[in-house]
């Protein structure tokens, strides 16, 4: 005889990816606000590091008077190369912290807005792990988009300001490889931040009893 109650199957990732992607697309404007936090933090980090990378690319090719100009405009060279100062690192750490807190805040709001939806999903047979995956994946997309956009923005602004300050040499010796690397790890960093920020809200959402979720007024 078949047992009266069987165990629910775990949904394959392909389905979870599809559902979470559609959910995000349907709520594009709402999620763009969360993404904006990541864009700004990402842009700041990328701006700082891209600036040093560009100067490092320019430095060996710069004539003496340009070198003079670079040093006199406040950039410090350590043994012929530029790098982040302790002050830069402090600012970056703080901005990332503020960004993470902002994401936790935004995602908690998003969970509250979707209490009823989560309750309904659970009534239809969603497992707790599905709810967590849904939120984490949405956060990952936001991290990817926000990180990539922010990094590109940061690199562009950095290139632009240095171009205005130091002329065409900035573009001629633009360190493509190094900047691409910065965009890559910075996007990864944004995804990690987004992921960290959504963990607690996702956990709150997943643990809710469906009856409680359905009781809340919409």
């Amino acid at each position: 005889m078949k047992p009266a109650v069987e165990r629910q199957v775990v949904l394959p990732w392909t389905q979870v990816v599809r559902i979470s992607f559609n959910a995000l697309r349907a709520r594009l404007f709402r999620s763009l606000i969360t993404t904006a936090t990541l864009v700004l933090a990402g842009a700041f980090v990328a701006y700082t590091f891209a600036g040093y990378a560009i100067l490092n690319g320019l430095w060996p090719h710069a004539p003496a008077e340009l070198k003079e100009k670079i040093l006199s405009s406040g950039y410090e060279s350590f043994a012929g190369s530029f790098g982040s100062t302790p002050k830069d690192r402090w600012l970056i750490a703080l901005s990332l912290l503020v960004c993470t807190v902002g994401i936790v805040n935004a995602q908690l709001m998003a969970v509250t807005e979707r209490f009823r939806e989560i309750g309904t999903l659970k009534c239809l047979g969603a497992l707790d792990s599905f709810v967590i995956k849904l939120f984490v994946l949405e956060a990952a997309y936001q991290g990817l988009l926000g990180g990539a956009l922010g990094s590109l923005l940061g690199v562009m602004v950095s290139t632009g300001t240095l171009f205005i300050k130091f002329g065409t040499g900035v573009l001629r010796h633009w360190p493509v490889g190094h900047l691409a690397w910065i965009v890559c790890w910075n996007t990864g960093l944004a995804m990690v931040l987004s992921f960290t920020g959504v963990l607690y809200p996702a956990w709150v959402a997943a643990r809710m009893e469906p009856a409680l979720a359905l009781r809340t007024e919409q």
Binding site: V5, E6, R7, Q8, K122, C123, G125, L127, P210
Partner: peptide, 15 residues
């Protein structure tokens, strides 16, 4: 357990 409950809500009951 959670898996069996989810199965029950999914297959046995329509809300």
């Amino acid at each position: 357990d959670a898996y069996e409950l989810a199965w029950l809500r999914c297959r046995k009951i329509g809300y």
